Amino acid sequence: MGLDLKSIIPFAIAILYALTIHEFFHAWTANKLGDPTARMQGRLTLNPLAHLDPLGVLCFIFAHFGWGKPVPVNPAYFKHPRRDDVLVSAAGPVSNFVSALLFGLIFQILYKITGVSSDLFEVLKQLIMINLILAIFNCIPLYPLDGSHVLKGFLPRQMLPGYENICRYSPFILLGIILMGNFAHIPILSYVIWPPTVFFANLFMTFMIN
């Protein structure tokens, strides 16, 4: 991909926003539920620099996947550890999904009132797409993604030891799936993520206009 600023800038804005809001709401929810760990480490902030992982950002740019700096969570502070871990884990993807909806509404309102310039359209489109991709990707129930914590919170207790054993290998499974898409051209993740991303992006950008 060439270094085209007109495409890089909207992408960079979307990545910074999506990662920041995702990690912020993990930290905010944990703090509300009694865990001050993230707040005490300076993560309860909307400053993107507090949430960026340099390697994760580079991977976003060059390998089309990446990550933010994980928010530290100590379940020992929670009154209801299983329930509260689910809520903290779900907060990140939910914040991205709601953000995509809000940016879609902004696009539709501007479209109806004043029209949308090509530059602003590209920024809003990237904000919608990246937030949806991050939300859907993190809902995959493979550790260390948020979906694994949500699934763990709903599993019967007798199934937890077996699931935790699977979680030991999940990062390698996830990495293998990603590498298969990038180097072996077997885009398993794309088959999972892209259809719902396109569906919700089209829905959020058109339901008022139509």
Rank of each mutant, 00 (worst) to 15 (best):
Y111M: 12
L3C: 01
L189Y: 10
F154D: 08
I193T: 02
K32L: 14
I178K: 04
L16G: 02
I15Q: 00
E122I: 02
E122K: 12
T197R: 12
L19T: 04
G92F: 11
P93T: 12
I13E: 03
S99M: 07
A18K: 01
H22K: 07
F183A: 13
L160G: 01
P54D: 09
A30Q: 08
Y77K: 02
I178F: 12
C139Y: 14
G104L: 07
G2I: 11
C139A: 13
P141W: 04
S95F: 14
V150R: 05
A27E: 02
F107H: 05
R82I: 11
N202D: 11
G66V: 12
F25L: 09
N138W: 12
L19Q: 01
S89T: 06
F65N: 05
I21E: 00
K79R: 14
V86Q: 14
G56F: 08
D119H: 08
R168V: 00
H26I: 11
E122N: 11
Y191V: 01
L155D: 05
F25W: 15
S7M: 01
I21H: 02
L120Q: 10
Q158V: 00
A135E: 10
I128N: 05
L33V: 04
K32I: 07
T37V: 03
R83I: 09
K152H: 11
K152T: 00
F11V: 00
L124P: 15
C59D: 05
H149G: 00
